[in-house]
């Protein structure tokens, strides 16, 4: 909350952090260190060009094309680079596959490392203390709060992301979706399924 500026509050006065950001930006522009137009471009990229659809396209292709999947699992970065899904926070990505025996779930206990080029900016809950601290301790309970119920005999493996390595979950494709086109499959891959806090939903 703003403190002293509250005393002479004005309907037009932004919050303290908003003003702080403007101040930092102005100071950097004044020094010639940043270009405001470049900031707009970066925001546009993360809002409109990068997002879970990138990851979904990779998952859908892996489901229908076994050769692609093999290559993706064994030579992940080469495949992702080919599709342009690499760069900041995506330098080293490992794909972990869900099976009837193992369900994978991704967290960053330290901060909020996340495969940006594939999933965009992480959702609020991924950055929260609660998720970061609890998912390692009680993954099954956490999953149930996400509405994910796994068979008792499915093991849960929690992957803790770091600045060096990030993870993408390759979800299981339910039988109901077998025979769907790649394009149709892209539409059923949720962000949460690629983090491991969701499953692929039933066919509509």
């Amino acid at each position: 909350m703003p403190h002293d500026i509250e005393n002479h509050s004005h309907s037009l006065l932004p919050s303290e952090p908003e003003l702080k950001v403007k101040a930092i930006e102005s100071a950097l522009v004044n020094q010639g260190l940043i270009d405001p137009a470049a900031l707009d471009e970066i925001i546009d990229t993360y809002q409109n060009k990068i997002g879970p659809k990138n990851g979904a396209s990779i998952i859908a292709k892996a489901w229908i094309d076994q050769d692609f999947k093999d290559e993706l699992m064994s030579n992940t970065m080469a495949v992702l680079e080919k599709y342009g899904f690499y760069g900041r926070q995506g330098e080293h990505i490992r794909v972990v596959e869900n099976t009837p025996e193992v369900h994978n779930i991704v967290v960053c206990t330290l901060c909020s490392c996340y495969p940006w080029p594939l999933l965009g900016i992480p959702p609020t809950w991924y950055k929260s203390d609660e998720y970061r601290s609890r998912v390692v301790r009680e993954p099954r309970k956490c999953l149930s709060e996400f509405g994910v119920k796994l068979p008792e005999n499915t093991n849960i493996r929690v992957w803790d992301s770091t600045a060096e390595i990030r993870y993408l979950v390759l979800p299981m494709l339910p039988d109901a979706f077998k025979g769907f086109s790649e394009q149709e499959l892209v539409g059923i891959v949720s962000r949460d399924a690629m983090i491991g806090t969701g499953l692929i939903g039933p066919a509509k």
């Binding site: 952090p17 970066i42 925001i43 993360y46 809002q47 997002g51 609020t124 962000r191």
Partner: peptide, 18 residues
């Protein structure tokens, strides 16, 4: 998908990246 909840979040994020 809603990467930023407030414009200033996006702004400080972009500034850091830039």
């Amino acid at each position: 998908y809603r990467p930023f909840h407030e414009p200033w979040h996006a702004q400080i994020f972009a500034l850091t990246i830039h």
